[in-house]
Design a protein around this nucleic acid. Structure first.
Length: 396
DNA sequence: AGCCTTTGACCAGCG
DNA sequence: TCGCTGGTCAAAGGC
């Protein structure tokens, strides 16, 4: 595959519907439900991308009310069947990434876009209550992200609407699904114009019929969470799932005996809006040299890594971007794998996040893994939902 | 030559 | 039982 296609690992994401047909939020109750516990590899993840992000553009948090508190609020975790604390603790990190950029001033913050996933279900009203139809703590992450968004707002640039990548791992079924609604808003570095405050406002307007906004933002940054996670994948199918704006691509791990699958949805501009992992790798990653092959989006990732770097630079948050994730896990593999370095891992890093997560989870006690990872600007927070499924949230 | 992507068709689950 | 939908298969083609 040549460079030209690198940013489209899943192939031509063409059958994407530019029209962004109106998606009726909540019209599909199943979207947020995680059936992961069920037979085999069932899972259902709702990706922000699927949500009418445009719908409830903004959320206002009263001054003095810290989003963070929401995040840490037991309410958010109420759904969590087990191991609340680790999960809870995980919330902290994302803020490091984004929060660090600007921690204060979210007095009357506006939460947009990603938040919508949560928001829309609540008819635009922001309520901190457990997911109703969903055992998944996903929304919690959204909150979290909201938090970040809130804080992010203070900072005009980038991070405005960090893509949320949700990862769900059905431990019981040995299924790891990673959903990555990646709204790639490029980090401010590369696309300040689009990624900055405007971004928020746009998101706010998404609702107002400017449906393109969500995607536009993505477009603003070729960014993209790469599907490349260090493993080799072979695409075996692609389908346009109803209710989803983007075609869903199906990948299998090419490693013999490894039946891990992943699927992700990619926007027309190449950004991955959702990544879902099924299963976990029971084998080490292939040689780095080969890593970027299938889903690799080197150019993008590289670009992304740069952005990440820029972010880091601004924030001096070492843990940002891939750093956390990569650094925390895979002791045996490229420890230097940090966004900052912008090395080849950066390339994979973005995409790798998904697999890394899987790997990470896979390698150790899943529960112990419950720590935040930040990859390619994506914060990853593994959690466990009521179904007993693990979830990982990625935030870009 | 090998591996991967593409893509239409097929199959299974569900309402 | 039928239709819809999501997931997978497999042939064809490309790199």
């Amino acid at each position: 595959m040549d460079a030209t296609t690198l940013d489209h690992p899943s192939g031509p994401s063409d059958d994407f519907d530019p029209g962004l047909t109106g998606f009726n939020p909540g019209s599909d109750p199943t979207l947020f439900s995680s059936t992961g516990g069920g037979g085999g590899a069932k899972y259902k993840l709702m990706s922000p991308a699927k949500l009418p992000i445009s719908r409830s553009p903004c959320l206002t948090i009263p001054p003095g009310l810290s989003p963070t508190s929401f995040l840490e609020s037991p309410v958010l975790l109420s759904n969590m069947k087990a191991e609340p604390s680790p999960t809870t603790g995980s919330f902290l990190k994302p803020q490091m990434v984004y929060g660090s950029l600007s921690s204060t001033s979210y007095s009357a913050t506006t939460m947009c876009s990603d938040f919508d996933t949560f928001d829309e279900r609540n008819s635009g009203s922001f309520e901190f209550k457990p997911h109703a139809g969903s055992n998944m703590v996903t929304t919690d992450y959204n909150h979290q992200r909201n938090d970040q968004l809130v804080q992010g707002q203070a900072q005009p640039q980038s991070l405005v609407s960090p893509p949320l990548v949700k990862s769900e791992m059905a431990v019981s079924s040995n299924e790891l699904s990673l959903s990555a609604p990646v709204h790639m808003v490029t980090s401010g570095a590369s696309a300040p114009a689009e990624g900055d405050s405007d971004d928020l406002s746009q998101r706010g307007h998404l609702n107002s019929g400017v449906q393109t906004s969500q995607f536009d933002h993505k477009g603003s940054g070729p960014s993209v969470i790469s599907s490349d996670d260090g493993y080799n994948w072979r695409k075996y199918g692609q389908k346009h799932v109803k209710g989803s704006e983007f075609p869903r691509s199906y990948y299998k791990c090419t490693h013999p005996n490894c039946e891990v699958k992943k699927l992700f949805e990619r926007s027309h501009d190449g950004q991955i809006t959702e990544i879902i992992y099924k299963g976990t790798h029971d084998h080490p990653k292939p040689q780095p040299s080969r890593r970027y092959n299938t889903g690799a989006m080197m150019p993008i990732q590289e670009e992304r890594s740069e952005k990440a770097s820029s972010l880091i630079g601004r924030d001096d948050k070492p843990s940002s971007i891939y750093g956390q994730m990569s650094s925390t896990n895979e002791p045996n593999s490229t420890p230097e794998r940090s966004p900052v370095t912008g090395n080849d891992d950066s390339v994979e890093g973005t995409g790798s996040l998904s697999n890394r997560m899987a790997e990470e989870i896979d390698d150790d006690d899943p529960f112990s893994k419950r720590r935040r990872m930040d990859v390619g600007g994506v914060d990853v927070t593994p959690v466990v939902n009521l179904s007993g499924n693990h979830e990982l949230l990625f935030r870009l």
